[in-house]
Structures are given as structure tokens and as C-alpha cells.
């Protein structure tokens, strides 16, 4: 579904992405992990051109999203993106947040959009909050609405950029549950996350990144139990025993 060919990106003289070649297939759930500054957020943001690339191609459903003159809006409406900071629109109710894009971009009538949105809110467990304002919701609730909002466009691909990193620990679970349920429905997902438990349970593949390069790709089982690359080994041991290095 998404294919990256020789993708390189620089911020000035700093190279954020180094010769990335990957393919994400339909129905796959891919988790991207790695230390801070490894380029994983940058990578996922190039998928829908929130970040530009200087060389290489990114093909979504066979078409290059970064080619000049492309209708980037058409691409973006088929890729759902969930941000770390949820970014709900505070001047609209929860329901309106979810109906705005389908009505504007897919020409749905208010009734059709409302129905679709309510079904999605039901799915994420927030149907009773349809007429609430975002400021009245907790972080976990806001993020679930953000997921519903992205799903309202019925995208074939969902991207998550550290969806639980800004949440208090007790709210992380409710969001991960929603994401897991999505995978069970066969959604193609790419997730940048630190939640290793989620990766282990749900991912088909793990991509480990550091310094702009994909250093290891493996199944979760292989990655967590038998990491090959020394950097990956270091990363996993740092997570498991944060104090071991100082000893």
C-alpha cells in the first residue's frame, strides 16, 4: 500500500532520514520504534507529506505523493493521521469535529455525516460525549475522538505518531484498546510508539530506527527476544533495565 524508495531528508545540513526503503502491505500493522531523535516521527510524517523529502519517492496506492503538482489534499483525505497532541478543534463539538471533513470533502449530507460519526464514536466508546466540547474531555477521551475523526474519512491507511506519549499513564490503556480493535478489523496501520506491550501483542512487524536509518526489521517476537543489531540490543536493554548502564 505504501512504498518508500530511496527516501532521504535533510534539515539544512542535518540528515534526518537516510536512504529509507520500505514497503507496507495492505492489512499490515507496523510499529516504528527507536530512541529520541531517531527520525521515526519524521518518517511517518513524510507518508502524508507533512514533511517534505529531498530525494526518493513515496508511493501510496501506486502514486507518488511527493511529486510536484500532485493533489496532496486528495492523498491526505485517504490517509488518517493521529497526532501526539490530539489537536481536536476546540471551537467545534466532538460530533462536529468528526463530521466536518466528510461533509466538506466527501459531500456527505449532515444526516449522513452525523450517522457515520455517531457510529464511530460508539466504536471508540464516546457516543455519550457527542455534544460535549473538547475542553470538557480528558486526554484519553480526546485522543479517542481524534481517532474517530480520522476514521470518519474511511481511510485505507491509519498513521499514529506517538498517540499515547502525551497521556497520563492511566489513560494510555483506553487508547491502545481502540487501536488494537482497529487492527482486528483489518486496518493497515503504521504506529510510532514507545508502548512495547502494544507492539508485542498487535504488530506484524517492528521497524527499529536510529539516526535516520532503519537498522532492524523483524517480527515482534524476533525483535524483542533476539535483537540482531547492537543498537537495537542497547535500546531494548535500556528500556528493560534503565539503571543497568550506570552500574
Amino acid at each position: 500500500m505504501i512504498e518508500l524508495q530511496n527516501v532521504n531528508k535533510w534539515y539544512g545540513s542535518y540528515q534526518a532520514l537516510v536512504d529509507i526503503n520500505e514497503t507496507i502491505h495492505k492489512g499490515e500493522v507496523v510499529v516504528v520504534c527507536g530512541p529520541s531523535g531517531s527520525g521515526k516521527s519524521t518518517l511517518i510524517r513524510t507518508f502524508n507529506r507533512l514533511e517534505a523529502i529531498q530525494s526518493g519517492r513515496i508511493l501510496f496506492e501506486g502514486r507518488d505523493i511527493h511529486a510536484p503538482g500532485t493533489d496532496v489534499n486528495a492523498f491526505r483525505s485517504r490517509i488518517g493521521f493521529v497526532f501526539q497532541q490530539f489537536n481536536l478543534f476546540p471551537h467545534l463539538t466532538v460530533l462536529q469535529n468528526c463530521t466536518m471533513a466528510p461533509m466538506q470533502l466527501r459531500g456527505l449530507s449532515r444526516k449522513e455525516a452525523d450517522e457515520r460519526a455517531m457510529a464511530l464514536l460508539q466504536r471508540v466508546g464516546l457516543a455519550n460525549k457527542a455534544n460535549a466540547w473538547p475542553s470538557e474531555l480528558s486526554g484519553g477521551q480526546q485522543q479517542r475522538v481524534a481517532i474517530a475523526r480520522a476514521l470518519a474519512m474511511q481511510p485505507p491507511l491509519m498513521l499514529f505518531d506517538e498517540p499515547t506519549s502525551a497521556l497520563d499513564p492511566e489513560m494510555v490503556g483506553e487508547v491502545l484498546l481502540v487501536m488494537r480493535d482497529l487492527t482486528r478489523d483489518g486496518m493497515t496501520m503504521v504506529c510510532v510508539t514507545h508502548e512495547m506491550g502494544f507492539a508485542r501483542e498487535v504488530a506484524d512487524r517492528v521497524l527499529f530506527m536510529d539516526e535516520g536509518k532503519v537498522l532492524e526489521r523483524a517480527t515482534p517476537d524476533d525483535f524483542f527476544n533476539r535483537p540482531q543489531h547492537p543498537r537495537a540490543q542497547q535500546f531494548l536493554s535500556d528500556i528493560r533495565s534503565p539503571f543497568a548502564r550506570g552500574a
Binding site: 507533512l50 489534499n73 497526532f83 478543534f89 471551537h91 466536518m100 471533513a101 466538506q104 470533502l105 474519512m153
Partner: peptide
């Protein structure tokens, strides 16, 4: 306005003009 608002509107597929009109300006004017 937080930058994320414009970015999110664009990520949904709204063009610059519509994102301004439906997301950024209503909040800014208020």
C-alpha cells in the same frame, strides 16, 4: 493559535483556504 490546528486540518485533507476558513479563523476571531 497552536500550529497543530492548521496541521491537523491539512492532514485531514482540507486545502489551505478551507483550513483557514473552517479551523484557524473561527478560533482566531473568537
Amino acid at each position: 493559535l497552536p500550529r497543530g490546528q492548521m496541521e491537523t486540518a491539512r492532514a485531514l485533507g482540507l486545502g489551505y483556504g478551507r483550513a483557514m476558513r473552517l479551523v484557524v479563523l473561527p478560533q482566531s476571531l473568537r
